[in-house]
């Protein structure tokens, strides 16, 4: 087994740890750094609960090897504080059990940054990437639109 030492840039901090090349980013975030806000839901790229940002773009951290993230700028839900989208999720009751929430918020935040004036079509295209089983989709829609409008 090859163990290598890597330095990752996570939430603006340089973090060094030992990994296997076969380790996915999600596992390293959770097990090595205790950043458990990113959730495992399928480890198959299907549910979006593990979504983080890599260079500002949404990324399912179960679909990326940790080694691929070296030299990239990674943001996890723990790196997001006091953003309008987080506040909007609270105000609009956009979650119930909360398990999908970090991933959903990361995806919404990436969308807001990429397309501050996104309309329904783009919102739908982006948000199909995450599953909310409690199904607060209506409320999530209201939350994301409230931020898009106010930033547009």
């Amino acid at each position: 087994m090859t163990i290598v030492s890597v330095t990752l840039m996570i939430n603006g901090e340089e973090r060094t740890t030992e990994i296997r090349y076969a380790d996915i980013l999600l596992t390293v975030l959770r097990e090595k750094f205790g950043l458990t806000g990113s959730k495992p839901g399928c480890l198959n790229g299907d549910c979006g609960a593990c979504t983080v940002h890599v260079n500002g773009k949404p990324m399912k951290s179960c679909l990326m090897l940790a080694i691929e993230a070296v030299g990239e700028d990674i943001t996890t839900i723990e790196g997001l504080k006091g953003t309008p989208i987080q506040q909007a999720f609270i105000q609009h009751f956009a979650f119930q059990c909360g398990y999908c929430t970090p991933g959903f918020i990361m995806n919404c935040q990436a969308l807001i940054q990429a397309y501050p004036d996104a309309g329904d079509k783009v919102i739908k295209e982006w948000l199909e990437s995450n599953i909310c089983r409690c199904t607060s989709y209506e409320e999530i829609e209201a939350a994301v639109k409230s931020v898009l409008r106010s930033e547009a």
Binding site: S38, F89, I90, F95, G98, T101, I105
Partner: peptide, 15 residues
């Protein structure tokens, strides 16, 4: 507002 809301949007709610 649900009492655990802030923890849930910050990834701090523990499962």
């Amino acid at each position: 507002i649900r009492r655990e809301a802030l923890d849930k949007v910050r990834g701090r709610a523990v499962y």
